[in-house]
Design a protein around this nucleic acid. Structure first.
Lengths: 141, 141
DNA sequence: ATTACTGCAAAGCATTTGCAGACTG
DNA sequence: CAGTCTGCAAATGCTTTGCAGTAAT
């Protein structure tokens, strides 16, 4: 289940804040926004403090390949998720914006056929959109 | 090649601005940002005017299913493309942000397997990212 | 001690909104 | 003419940045 706990890069200080942010991401099975992370950190309070630190930490983690930043259609905030859980793709409800994980990846069996264009593929991002169960039921309103 | 020219929805006025914005999108084979559209409209000048109208028109077009709004990873601006060209997917250079179109769609032959989760899939969005040819050559810098 | 990090406040930037005047049908 | 649109300017909301004090190594 747990992979190696992950090593702090040298020169990077292991602060309380960073460890807490990591812990929050680790406990969540869904990608989180900077704001929702900071809310968790502040114990539910809406204190705006921390937010810039959260962003800076997320940038750092992303640079260090610890997390992945994803930006979802019609959602104004970026979401972040531990790479441990990465290479998952998501289905997003166009109504309530809830996020469901896809079990497998269409790209596993697909050749994008870009070699003639000299494009070196590093990765990919896939999103489905549609209606989740509860919003589907209310579509007529 | 050309599908039906598309009908203006009733109640929606056919103004000079809207027609020009449509024309710009029609001439471009790549998705464009609101800003780049407005630059084209202003004949290359950086006039900030128009921008809100461009956004409003793009929102309208999107609502009327004339265009599709896409938001690309690590790119802060939304991009818009005529649906006539839609259901294409893109490879984006992580360095210079140039956009290359993919010829075919991995989802054509893929079952996301979400029916058990009661998610009604309306559509999808796929992006590859990596290095385009010219950036690949400069990677060492 | 050094060097990196945090909190705070202020700035940036894409996008949205309010409003009065201008234009379409 | 009536009802929509446009331009302008100001507001919004997420994210970034500068700086002086604080904490990690």
């Amino acid at each position: 289940m747990s992979e190696e706990p992950f090593v702090w890069p040298k020169g990077v200080k292991k602060t309380k804040q960073r460890m807490e942010i990591f812990a929050v991401l680790e406990k969540s099975d869904k990608p989180m926004s900077a704001f929702s992370i900071s809310k968790k950190l502040n114990g539910g309070t809406d204190k705006n403090t921390w937010l810039s630190t959260v962003y800076r930490t997320l940038d750092l983690f992303e640079k260090e390949k610890i997390i992945t930043k994803i930006s979802i259609m019609n959602q104004d905030m970026a979401l972040y998720t531990l790479n441990r859980f990465a290479h998952h793709h998501y289905a997003v409800c166009v109504d309530c914006h809830s996020v469901i994980e896809m079990e497998n990846c269409p790209m596993e069996t697909f050749d994008p056929n870009l070699t003639d264009k000299n494009f070196r593929v590093l990765g990919h991002k896939i999103e489905l959109y549609g209606y989740c169960n509860s919003c589907e039921l209310q579509v007529e309103k």
